[in-house]
Amino acid sequence: MPDRGSAFTFVDRITDLEAGRRARGRFAIPARLSGFSSCLVAEAVGQLACWVAMSEVGFRRRPVAALSEETRILGDAAPGEILDLGVEIESCSEEAVVFGGWARVAGKPVLELHRCVGPMLDLEEFDAPEAMRADLATLRGAGTPPSRFAGVTAPDLSVTDRVPAQRLRATLQVPDSAPFFGDHFPRRPVFPGSLLLEAQIRLAVQLATEALPPDRALRPARVADVKMRAFILPGQAVELETGVQAATDAAAELTFAATVSGKRVATGRMEIVSRGPA
């Protein structure tokens, strides 16, 4: 599996790990990328928590993204920079892990995750436990070679319905194949929740430009009450919807939802803020 450990892996060294409690790690964002989104930063923090949880339960189970109370996006991480990552585990069992975490660049906070809950599923369904153990040993030693992550081509979003400044609907077509599926996950390809959130943010920013004063650069500041209800599989068409709940001159509060074949697969809220004049 050539993409395993490289196509969607965002921890390249674990510098400190206290089983079931906390960890510190890092990821060198490849300089050749054109950008590195906040959702991928959040993915990196989640992956570090995943290592702590898997090692705590002897690699029998692994967590998957499900609930997140709040993600605060505090700054940008750019290609060529080093992400410092930290996680604190609130609880970890064979059933679920509850954690919070952060990412910093050169000592400056860029992202915080507060109270995330990941249900633990059988690791064997997703990857080879022995290979994961070996990966952890490498990460805790010298680390992995520089990441071969080549970026992700954002899936197409086709707007299907639009009420200006109020609501936007679009279809996201998940590709049948993509390098990240080889890593997420080797035995069971699943569209990453972080990429779904990235698409929801794109849509929300598009809608917020109509709800906020014109000629402002916008950015996501907060994503809250996220709930991933089901896996999204290769080739599926996902209907995305976002709606403005409130807006001031400086910020817009939006809700978002994703459905597949009429079944709701994800919901949440986000805040889009103005950075100032574009």
Binding site: A66, L67, E69, S91, S93, E94, E95, A96, V98, R115, V117, P119, K227, M228, R229, A230
Partner: peptide, 24 residues
């Protein structure tokens, strides 16, 4: 309800009532 909803209930109830409800 699905299994994820049960985790969500516990998550929300802990927050609202300021109690600890261990998973399982």
């Amino acid at each position: 309800a699905e299994s994820i909803d049960f985790l969500d209930f516990v998550f929300g109830l802990e927050r609202a009532f300021k109690v600890k409800i261990p998973r399982g």
